[in-house]
Amino acid sequence: MEFKEILIRPDKCTGCLSCRLACAAAHSRAGNFLGAVAAGEKPRARIFVHRAGGKNLPLNCRHCTDPPCVDACVAASMHTAGGGLVTNHDRQERCIGCWMCVMSCPFGAIRDSGEEDPRAVKCDRQCAPGDGLPACVRACPTGALTYGTVDQFSASSREEFLRKWLQC
């Protein structure tokens, strides 16, 4: 099965940041928004909404085919798992929070977990319940975020894009 991506339509983004809250909540111990807030948890969102040029641009991990973050990881924590998922969630214990991946991600999509002994955290798709929709997509009220596969043309343009910047 082709790896599904979180597709972004910036024109539909109102900048409400619901995706960020939903993402953080889905990664909380409580597993739900109000429960996490009530418990005083501080889970980190792994999607970002940039405001640039008067427009909103949601950004998160693109799960690159040759991920710079995996190359950069000096601890063999970040890796490409089955199906193309770029993640370190299943190797969190190896992460030392050195921020090599943070420095390397062209999307700025990796961040520090904010814990006392911080680790790098990113979109790891550990947020999808039975229907498989990522929390950020479920939370988006305007359809700025959708979930699907990039068509063939786009896939090749992505490869080209990444190759270009990997080599620059």
């Binding site: 807030v37 889970p43 904010g114």
Partner: peptide
């Protein structure tokens, strides 16, 4: 979620302002 937790303020036109309940 901001509204749900009371963390959205529209009392002036510098906003709407929101506060992140997760400390960010």
């Amino acid at each position: 979620g901001f509204g749900e937790t009371g963390l959205c303020c529209r009392h002036c036109s510098q906003g709407p302002c929101r506060i992140n309940p997760f400390g960010e």
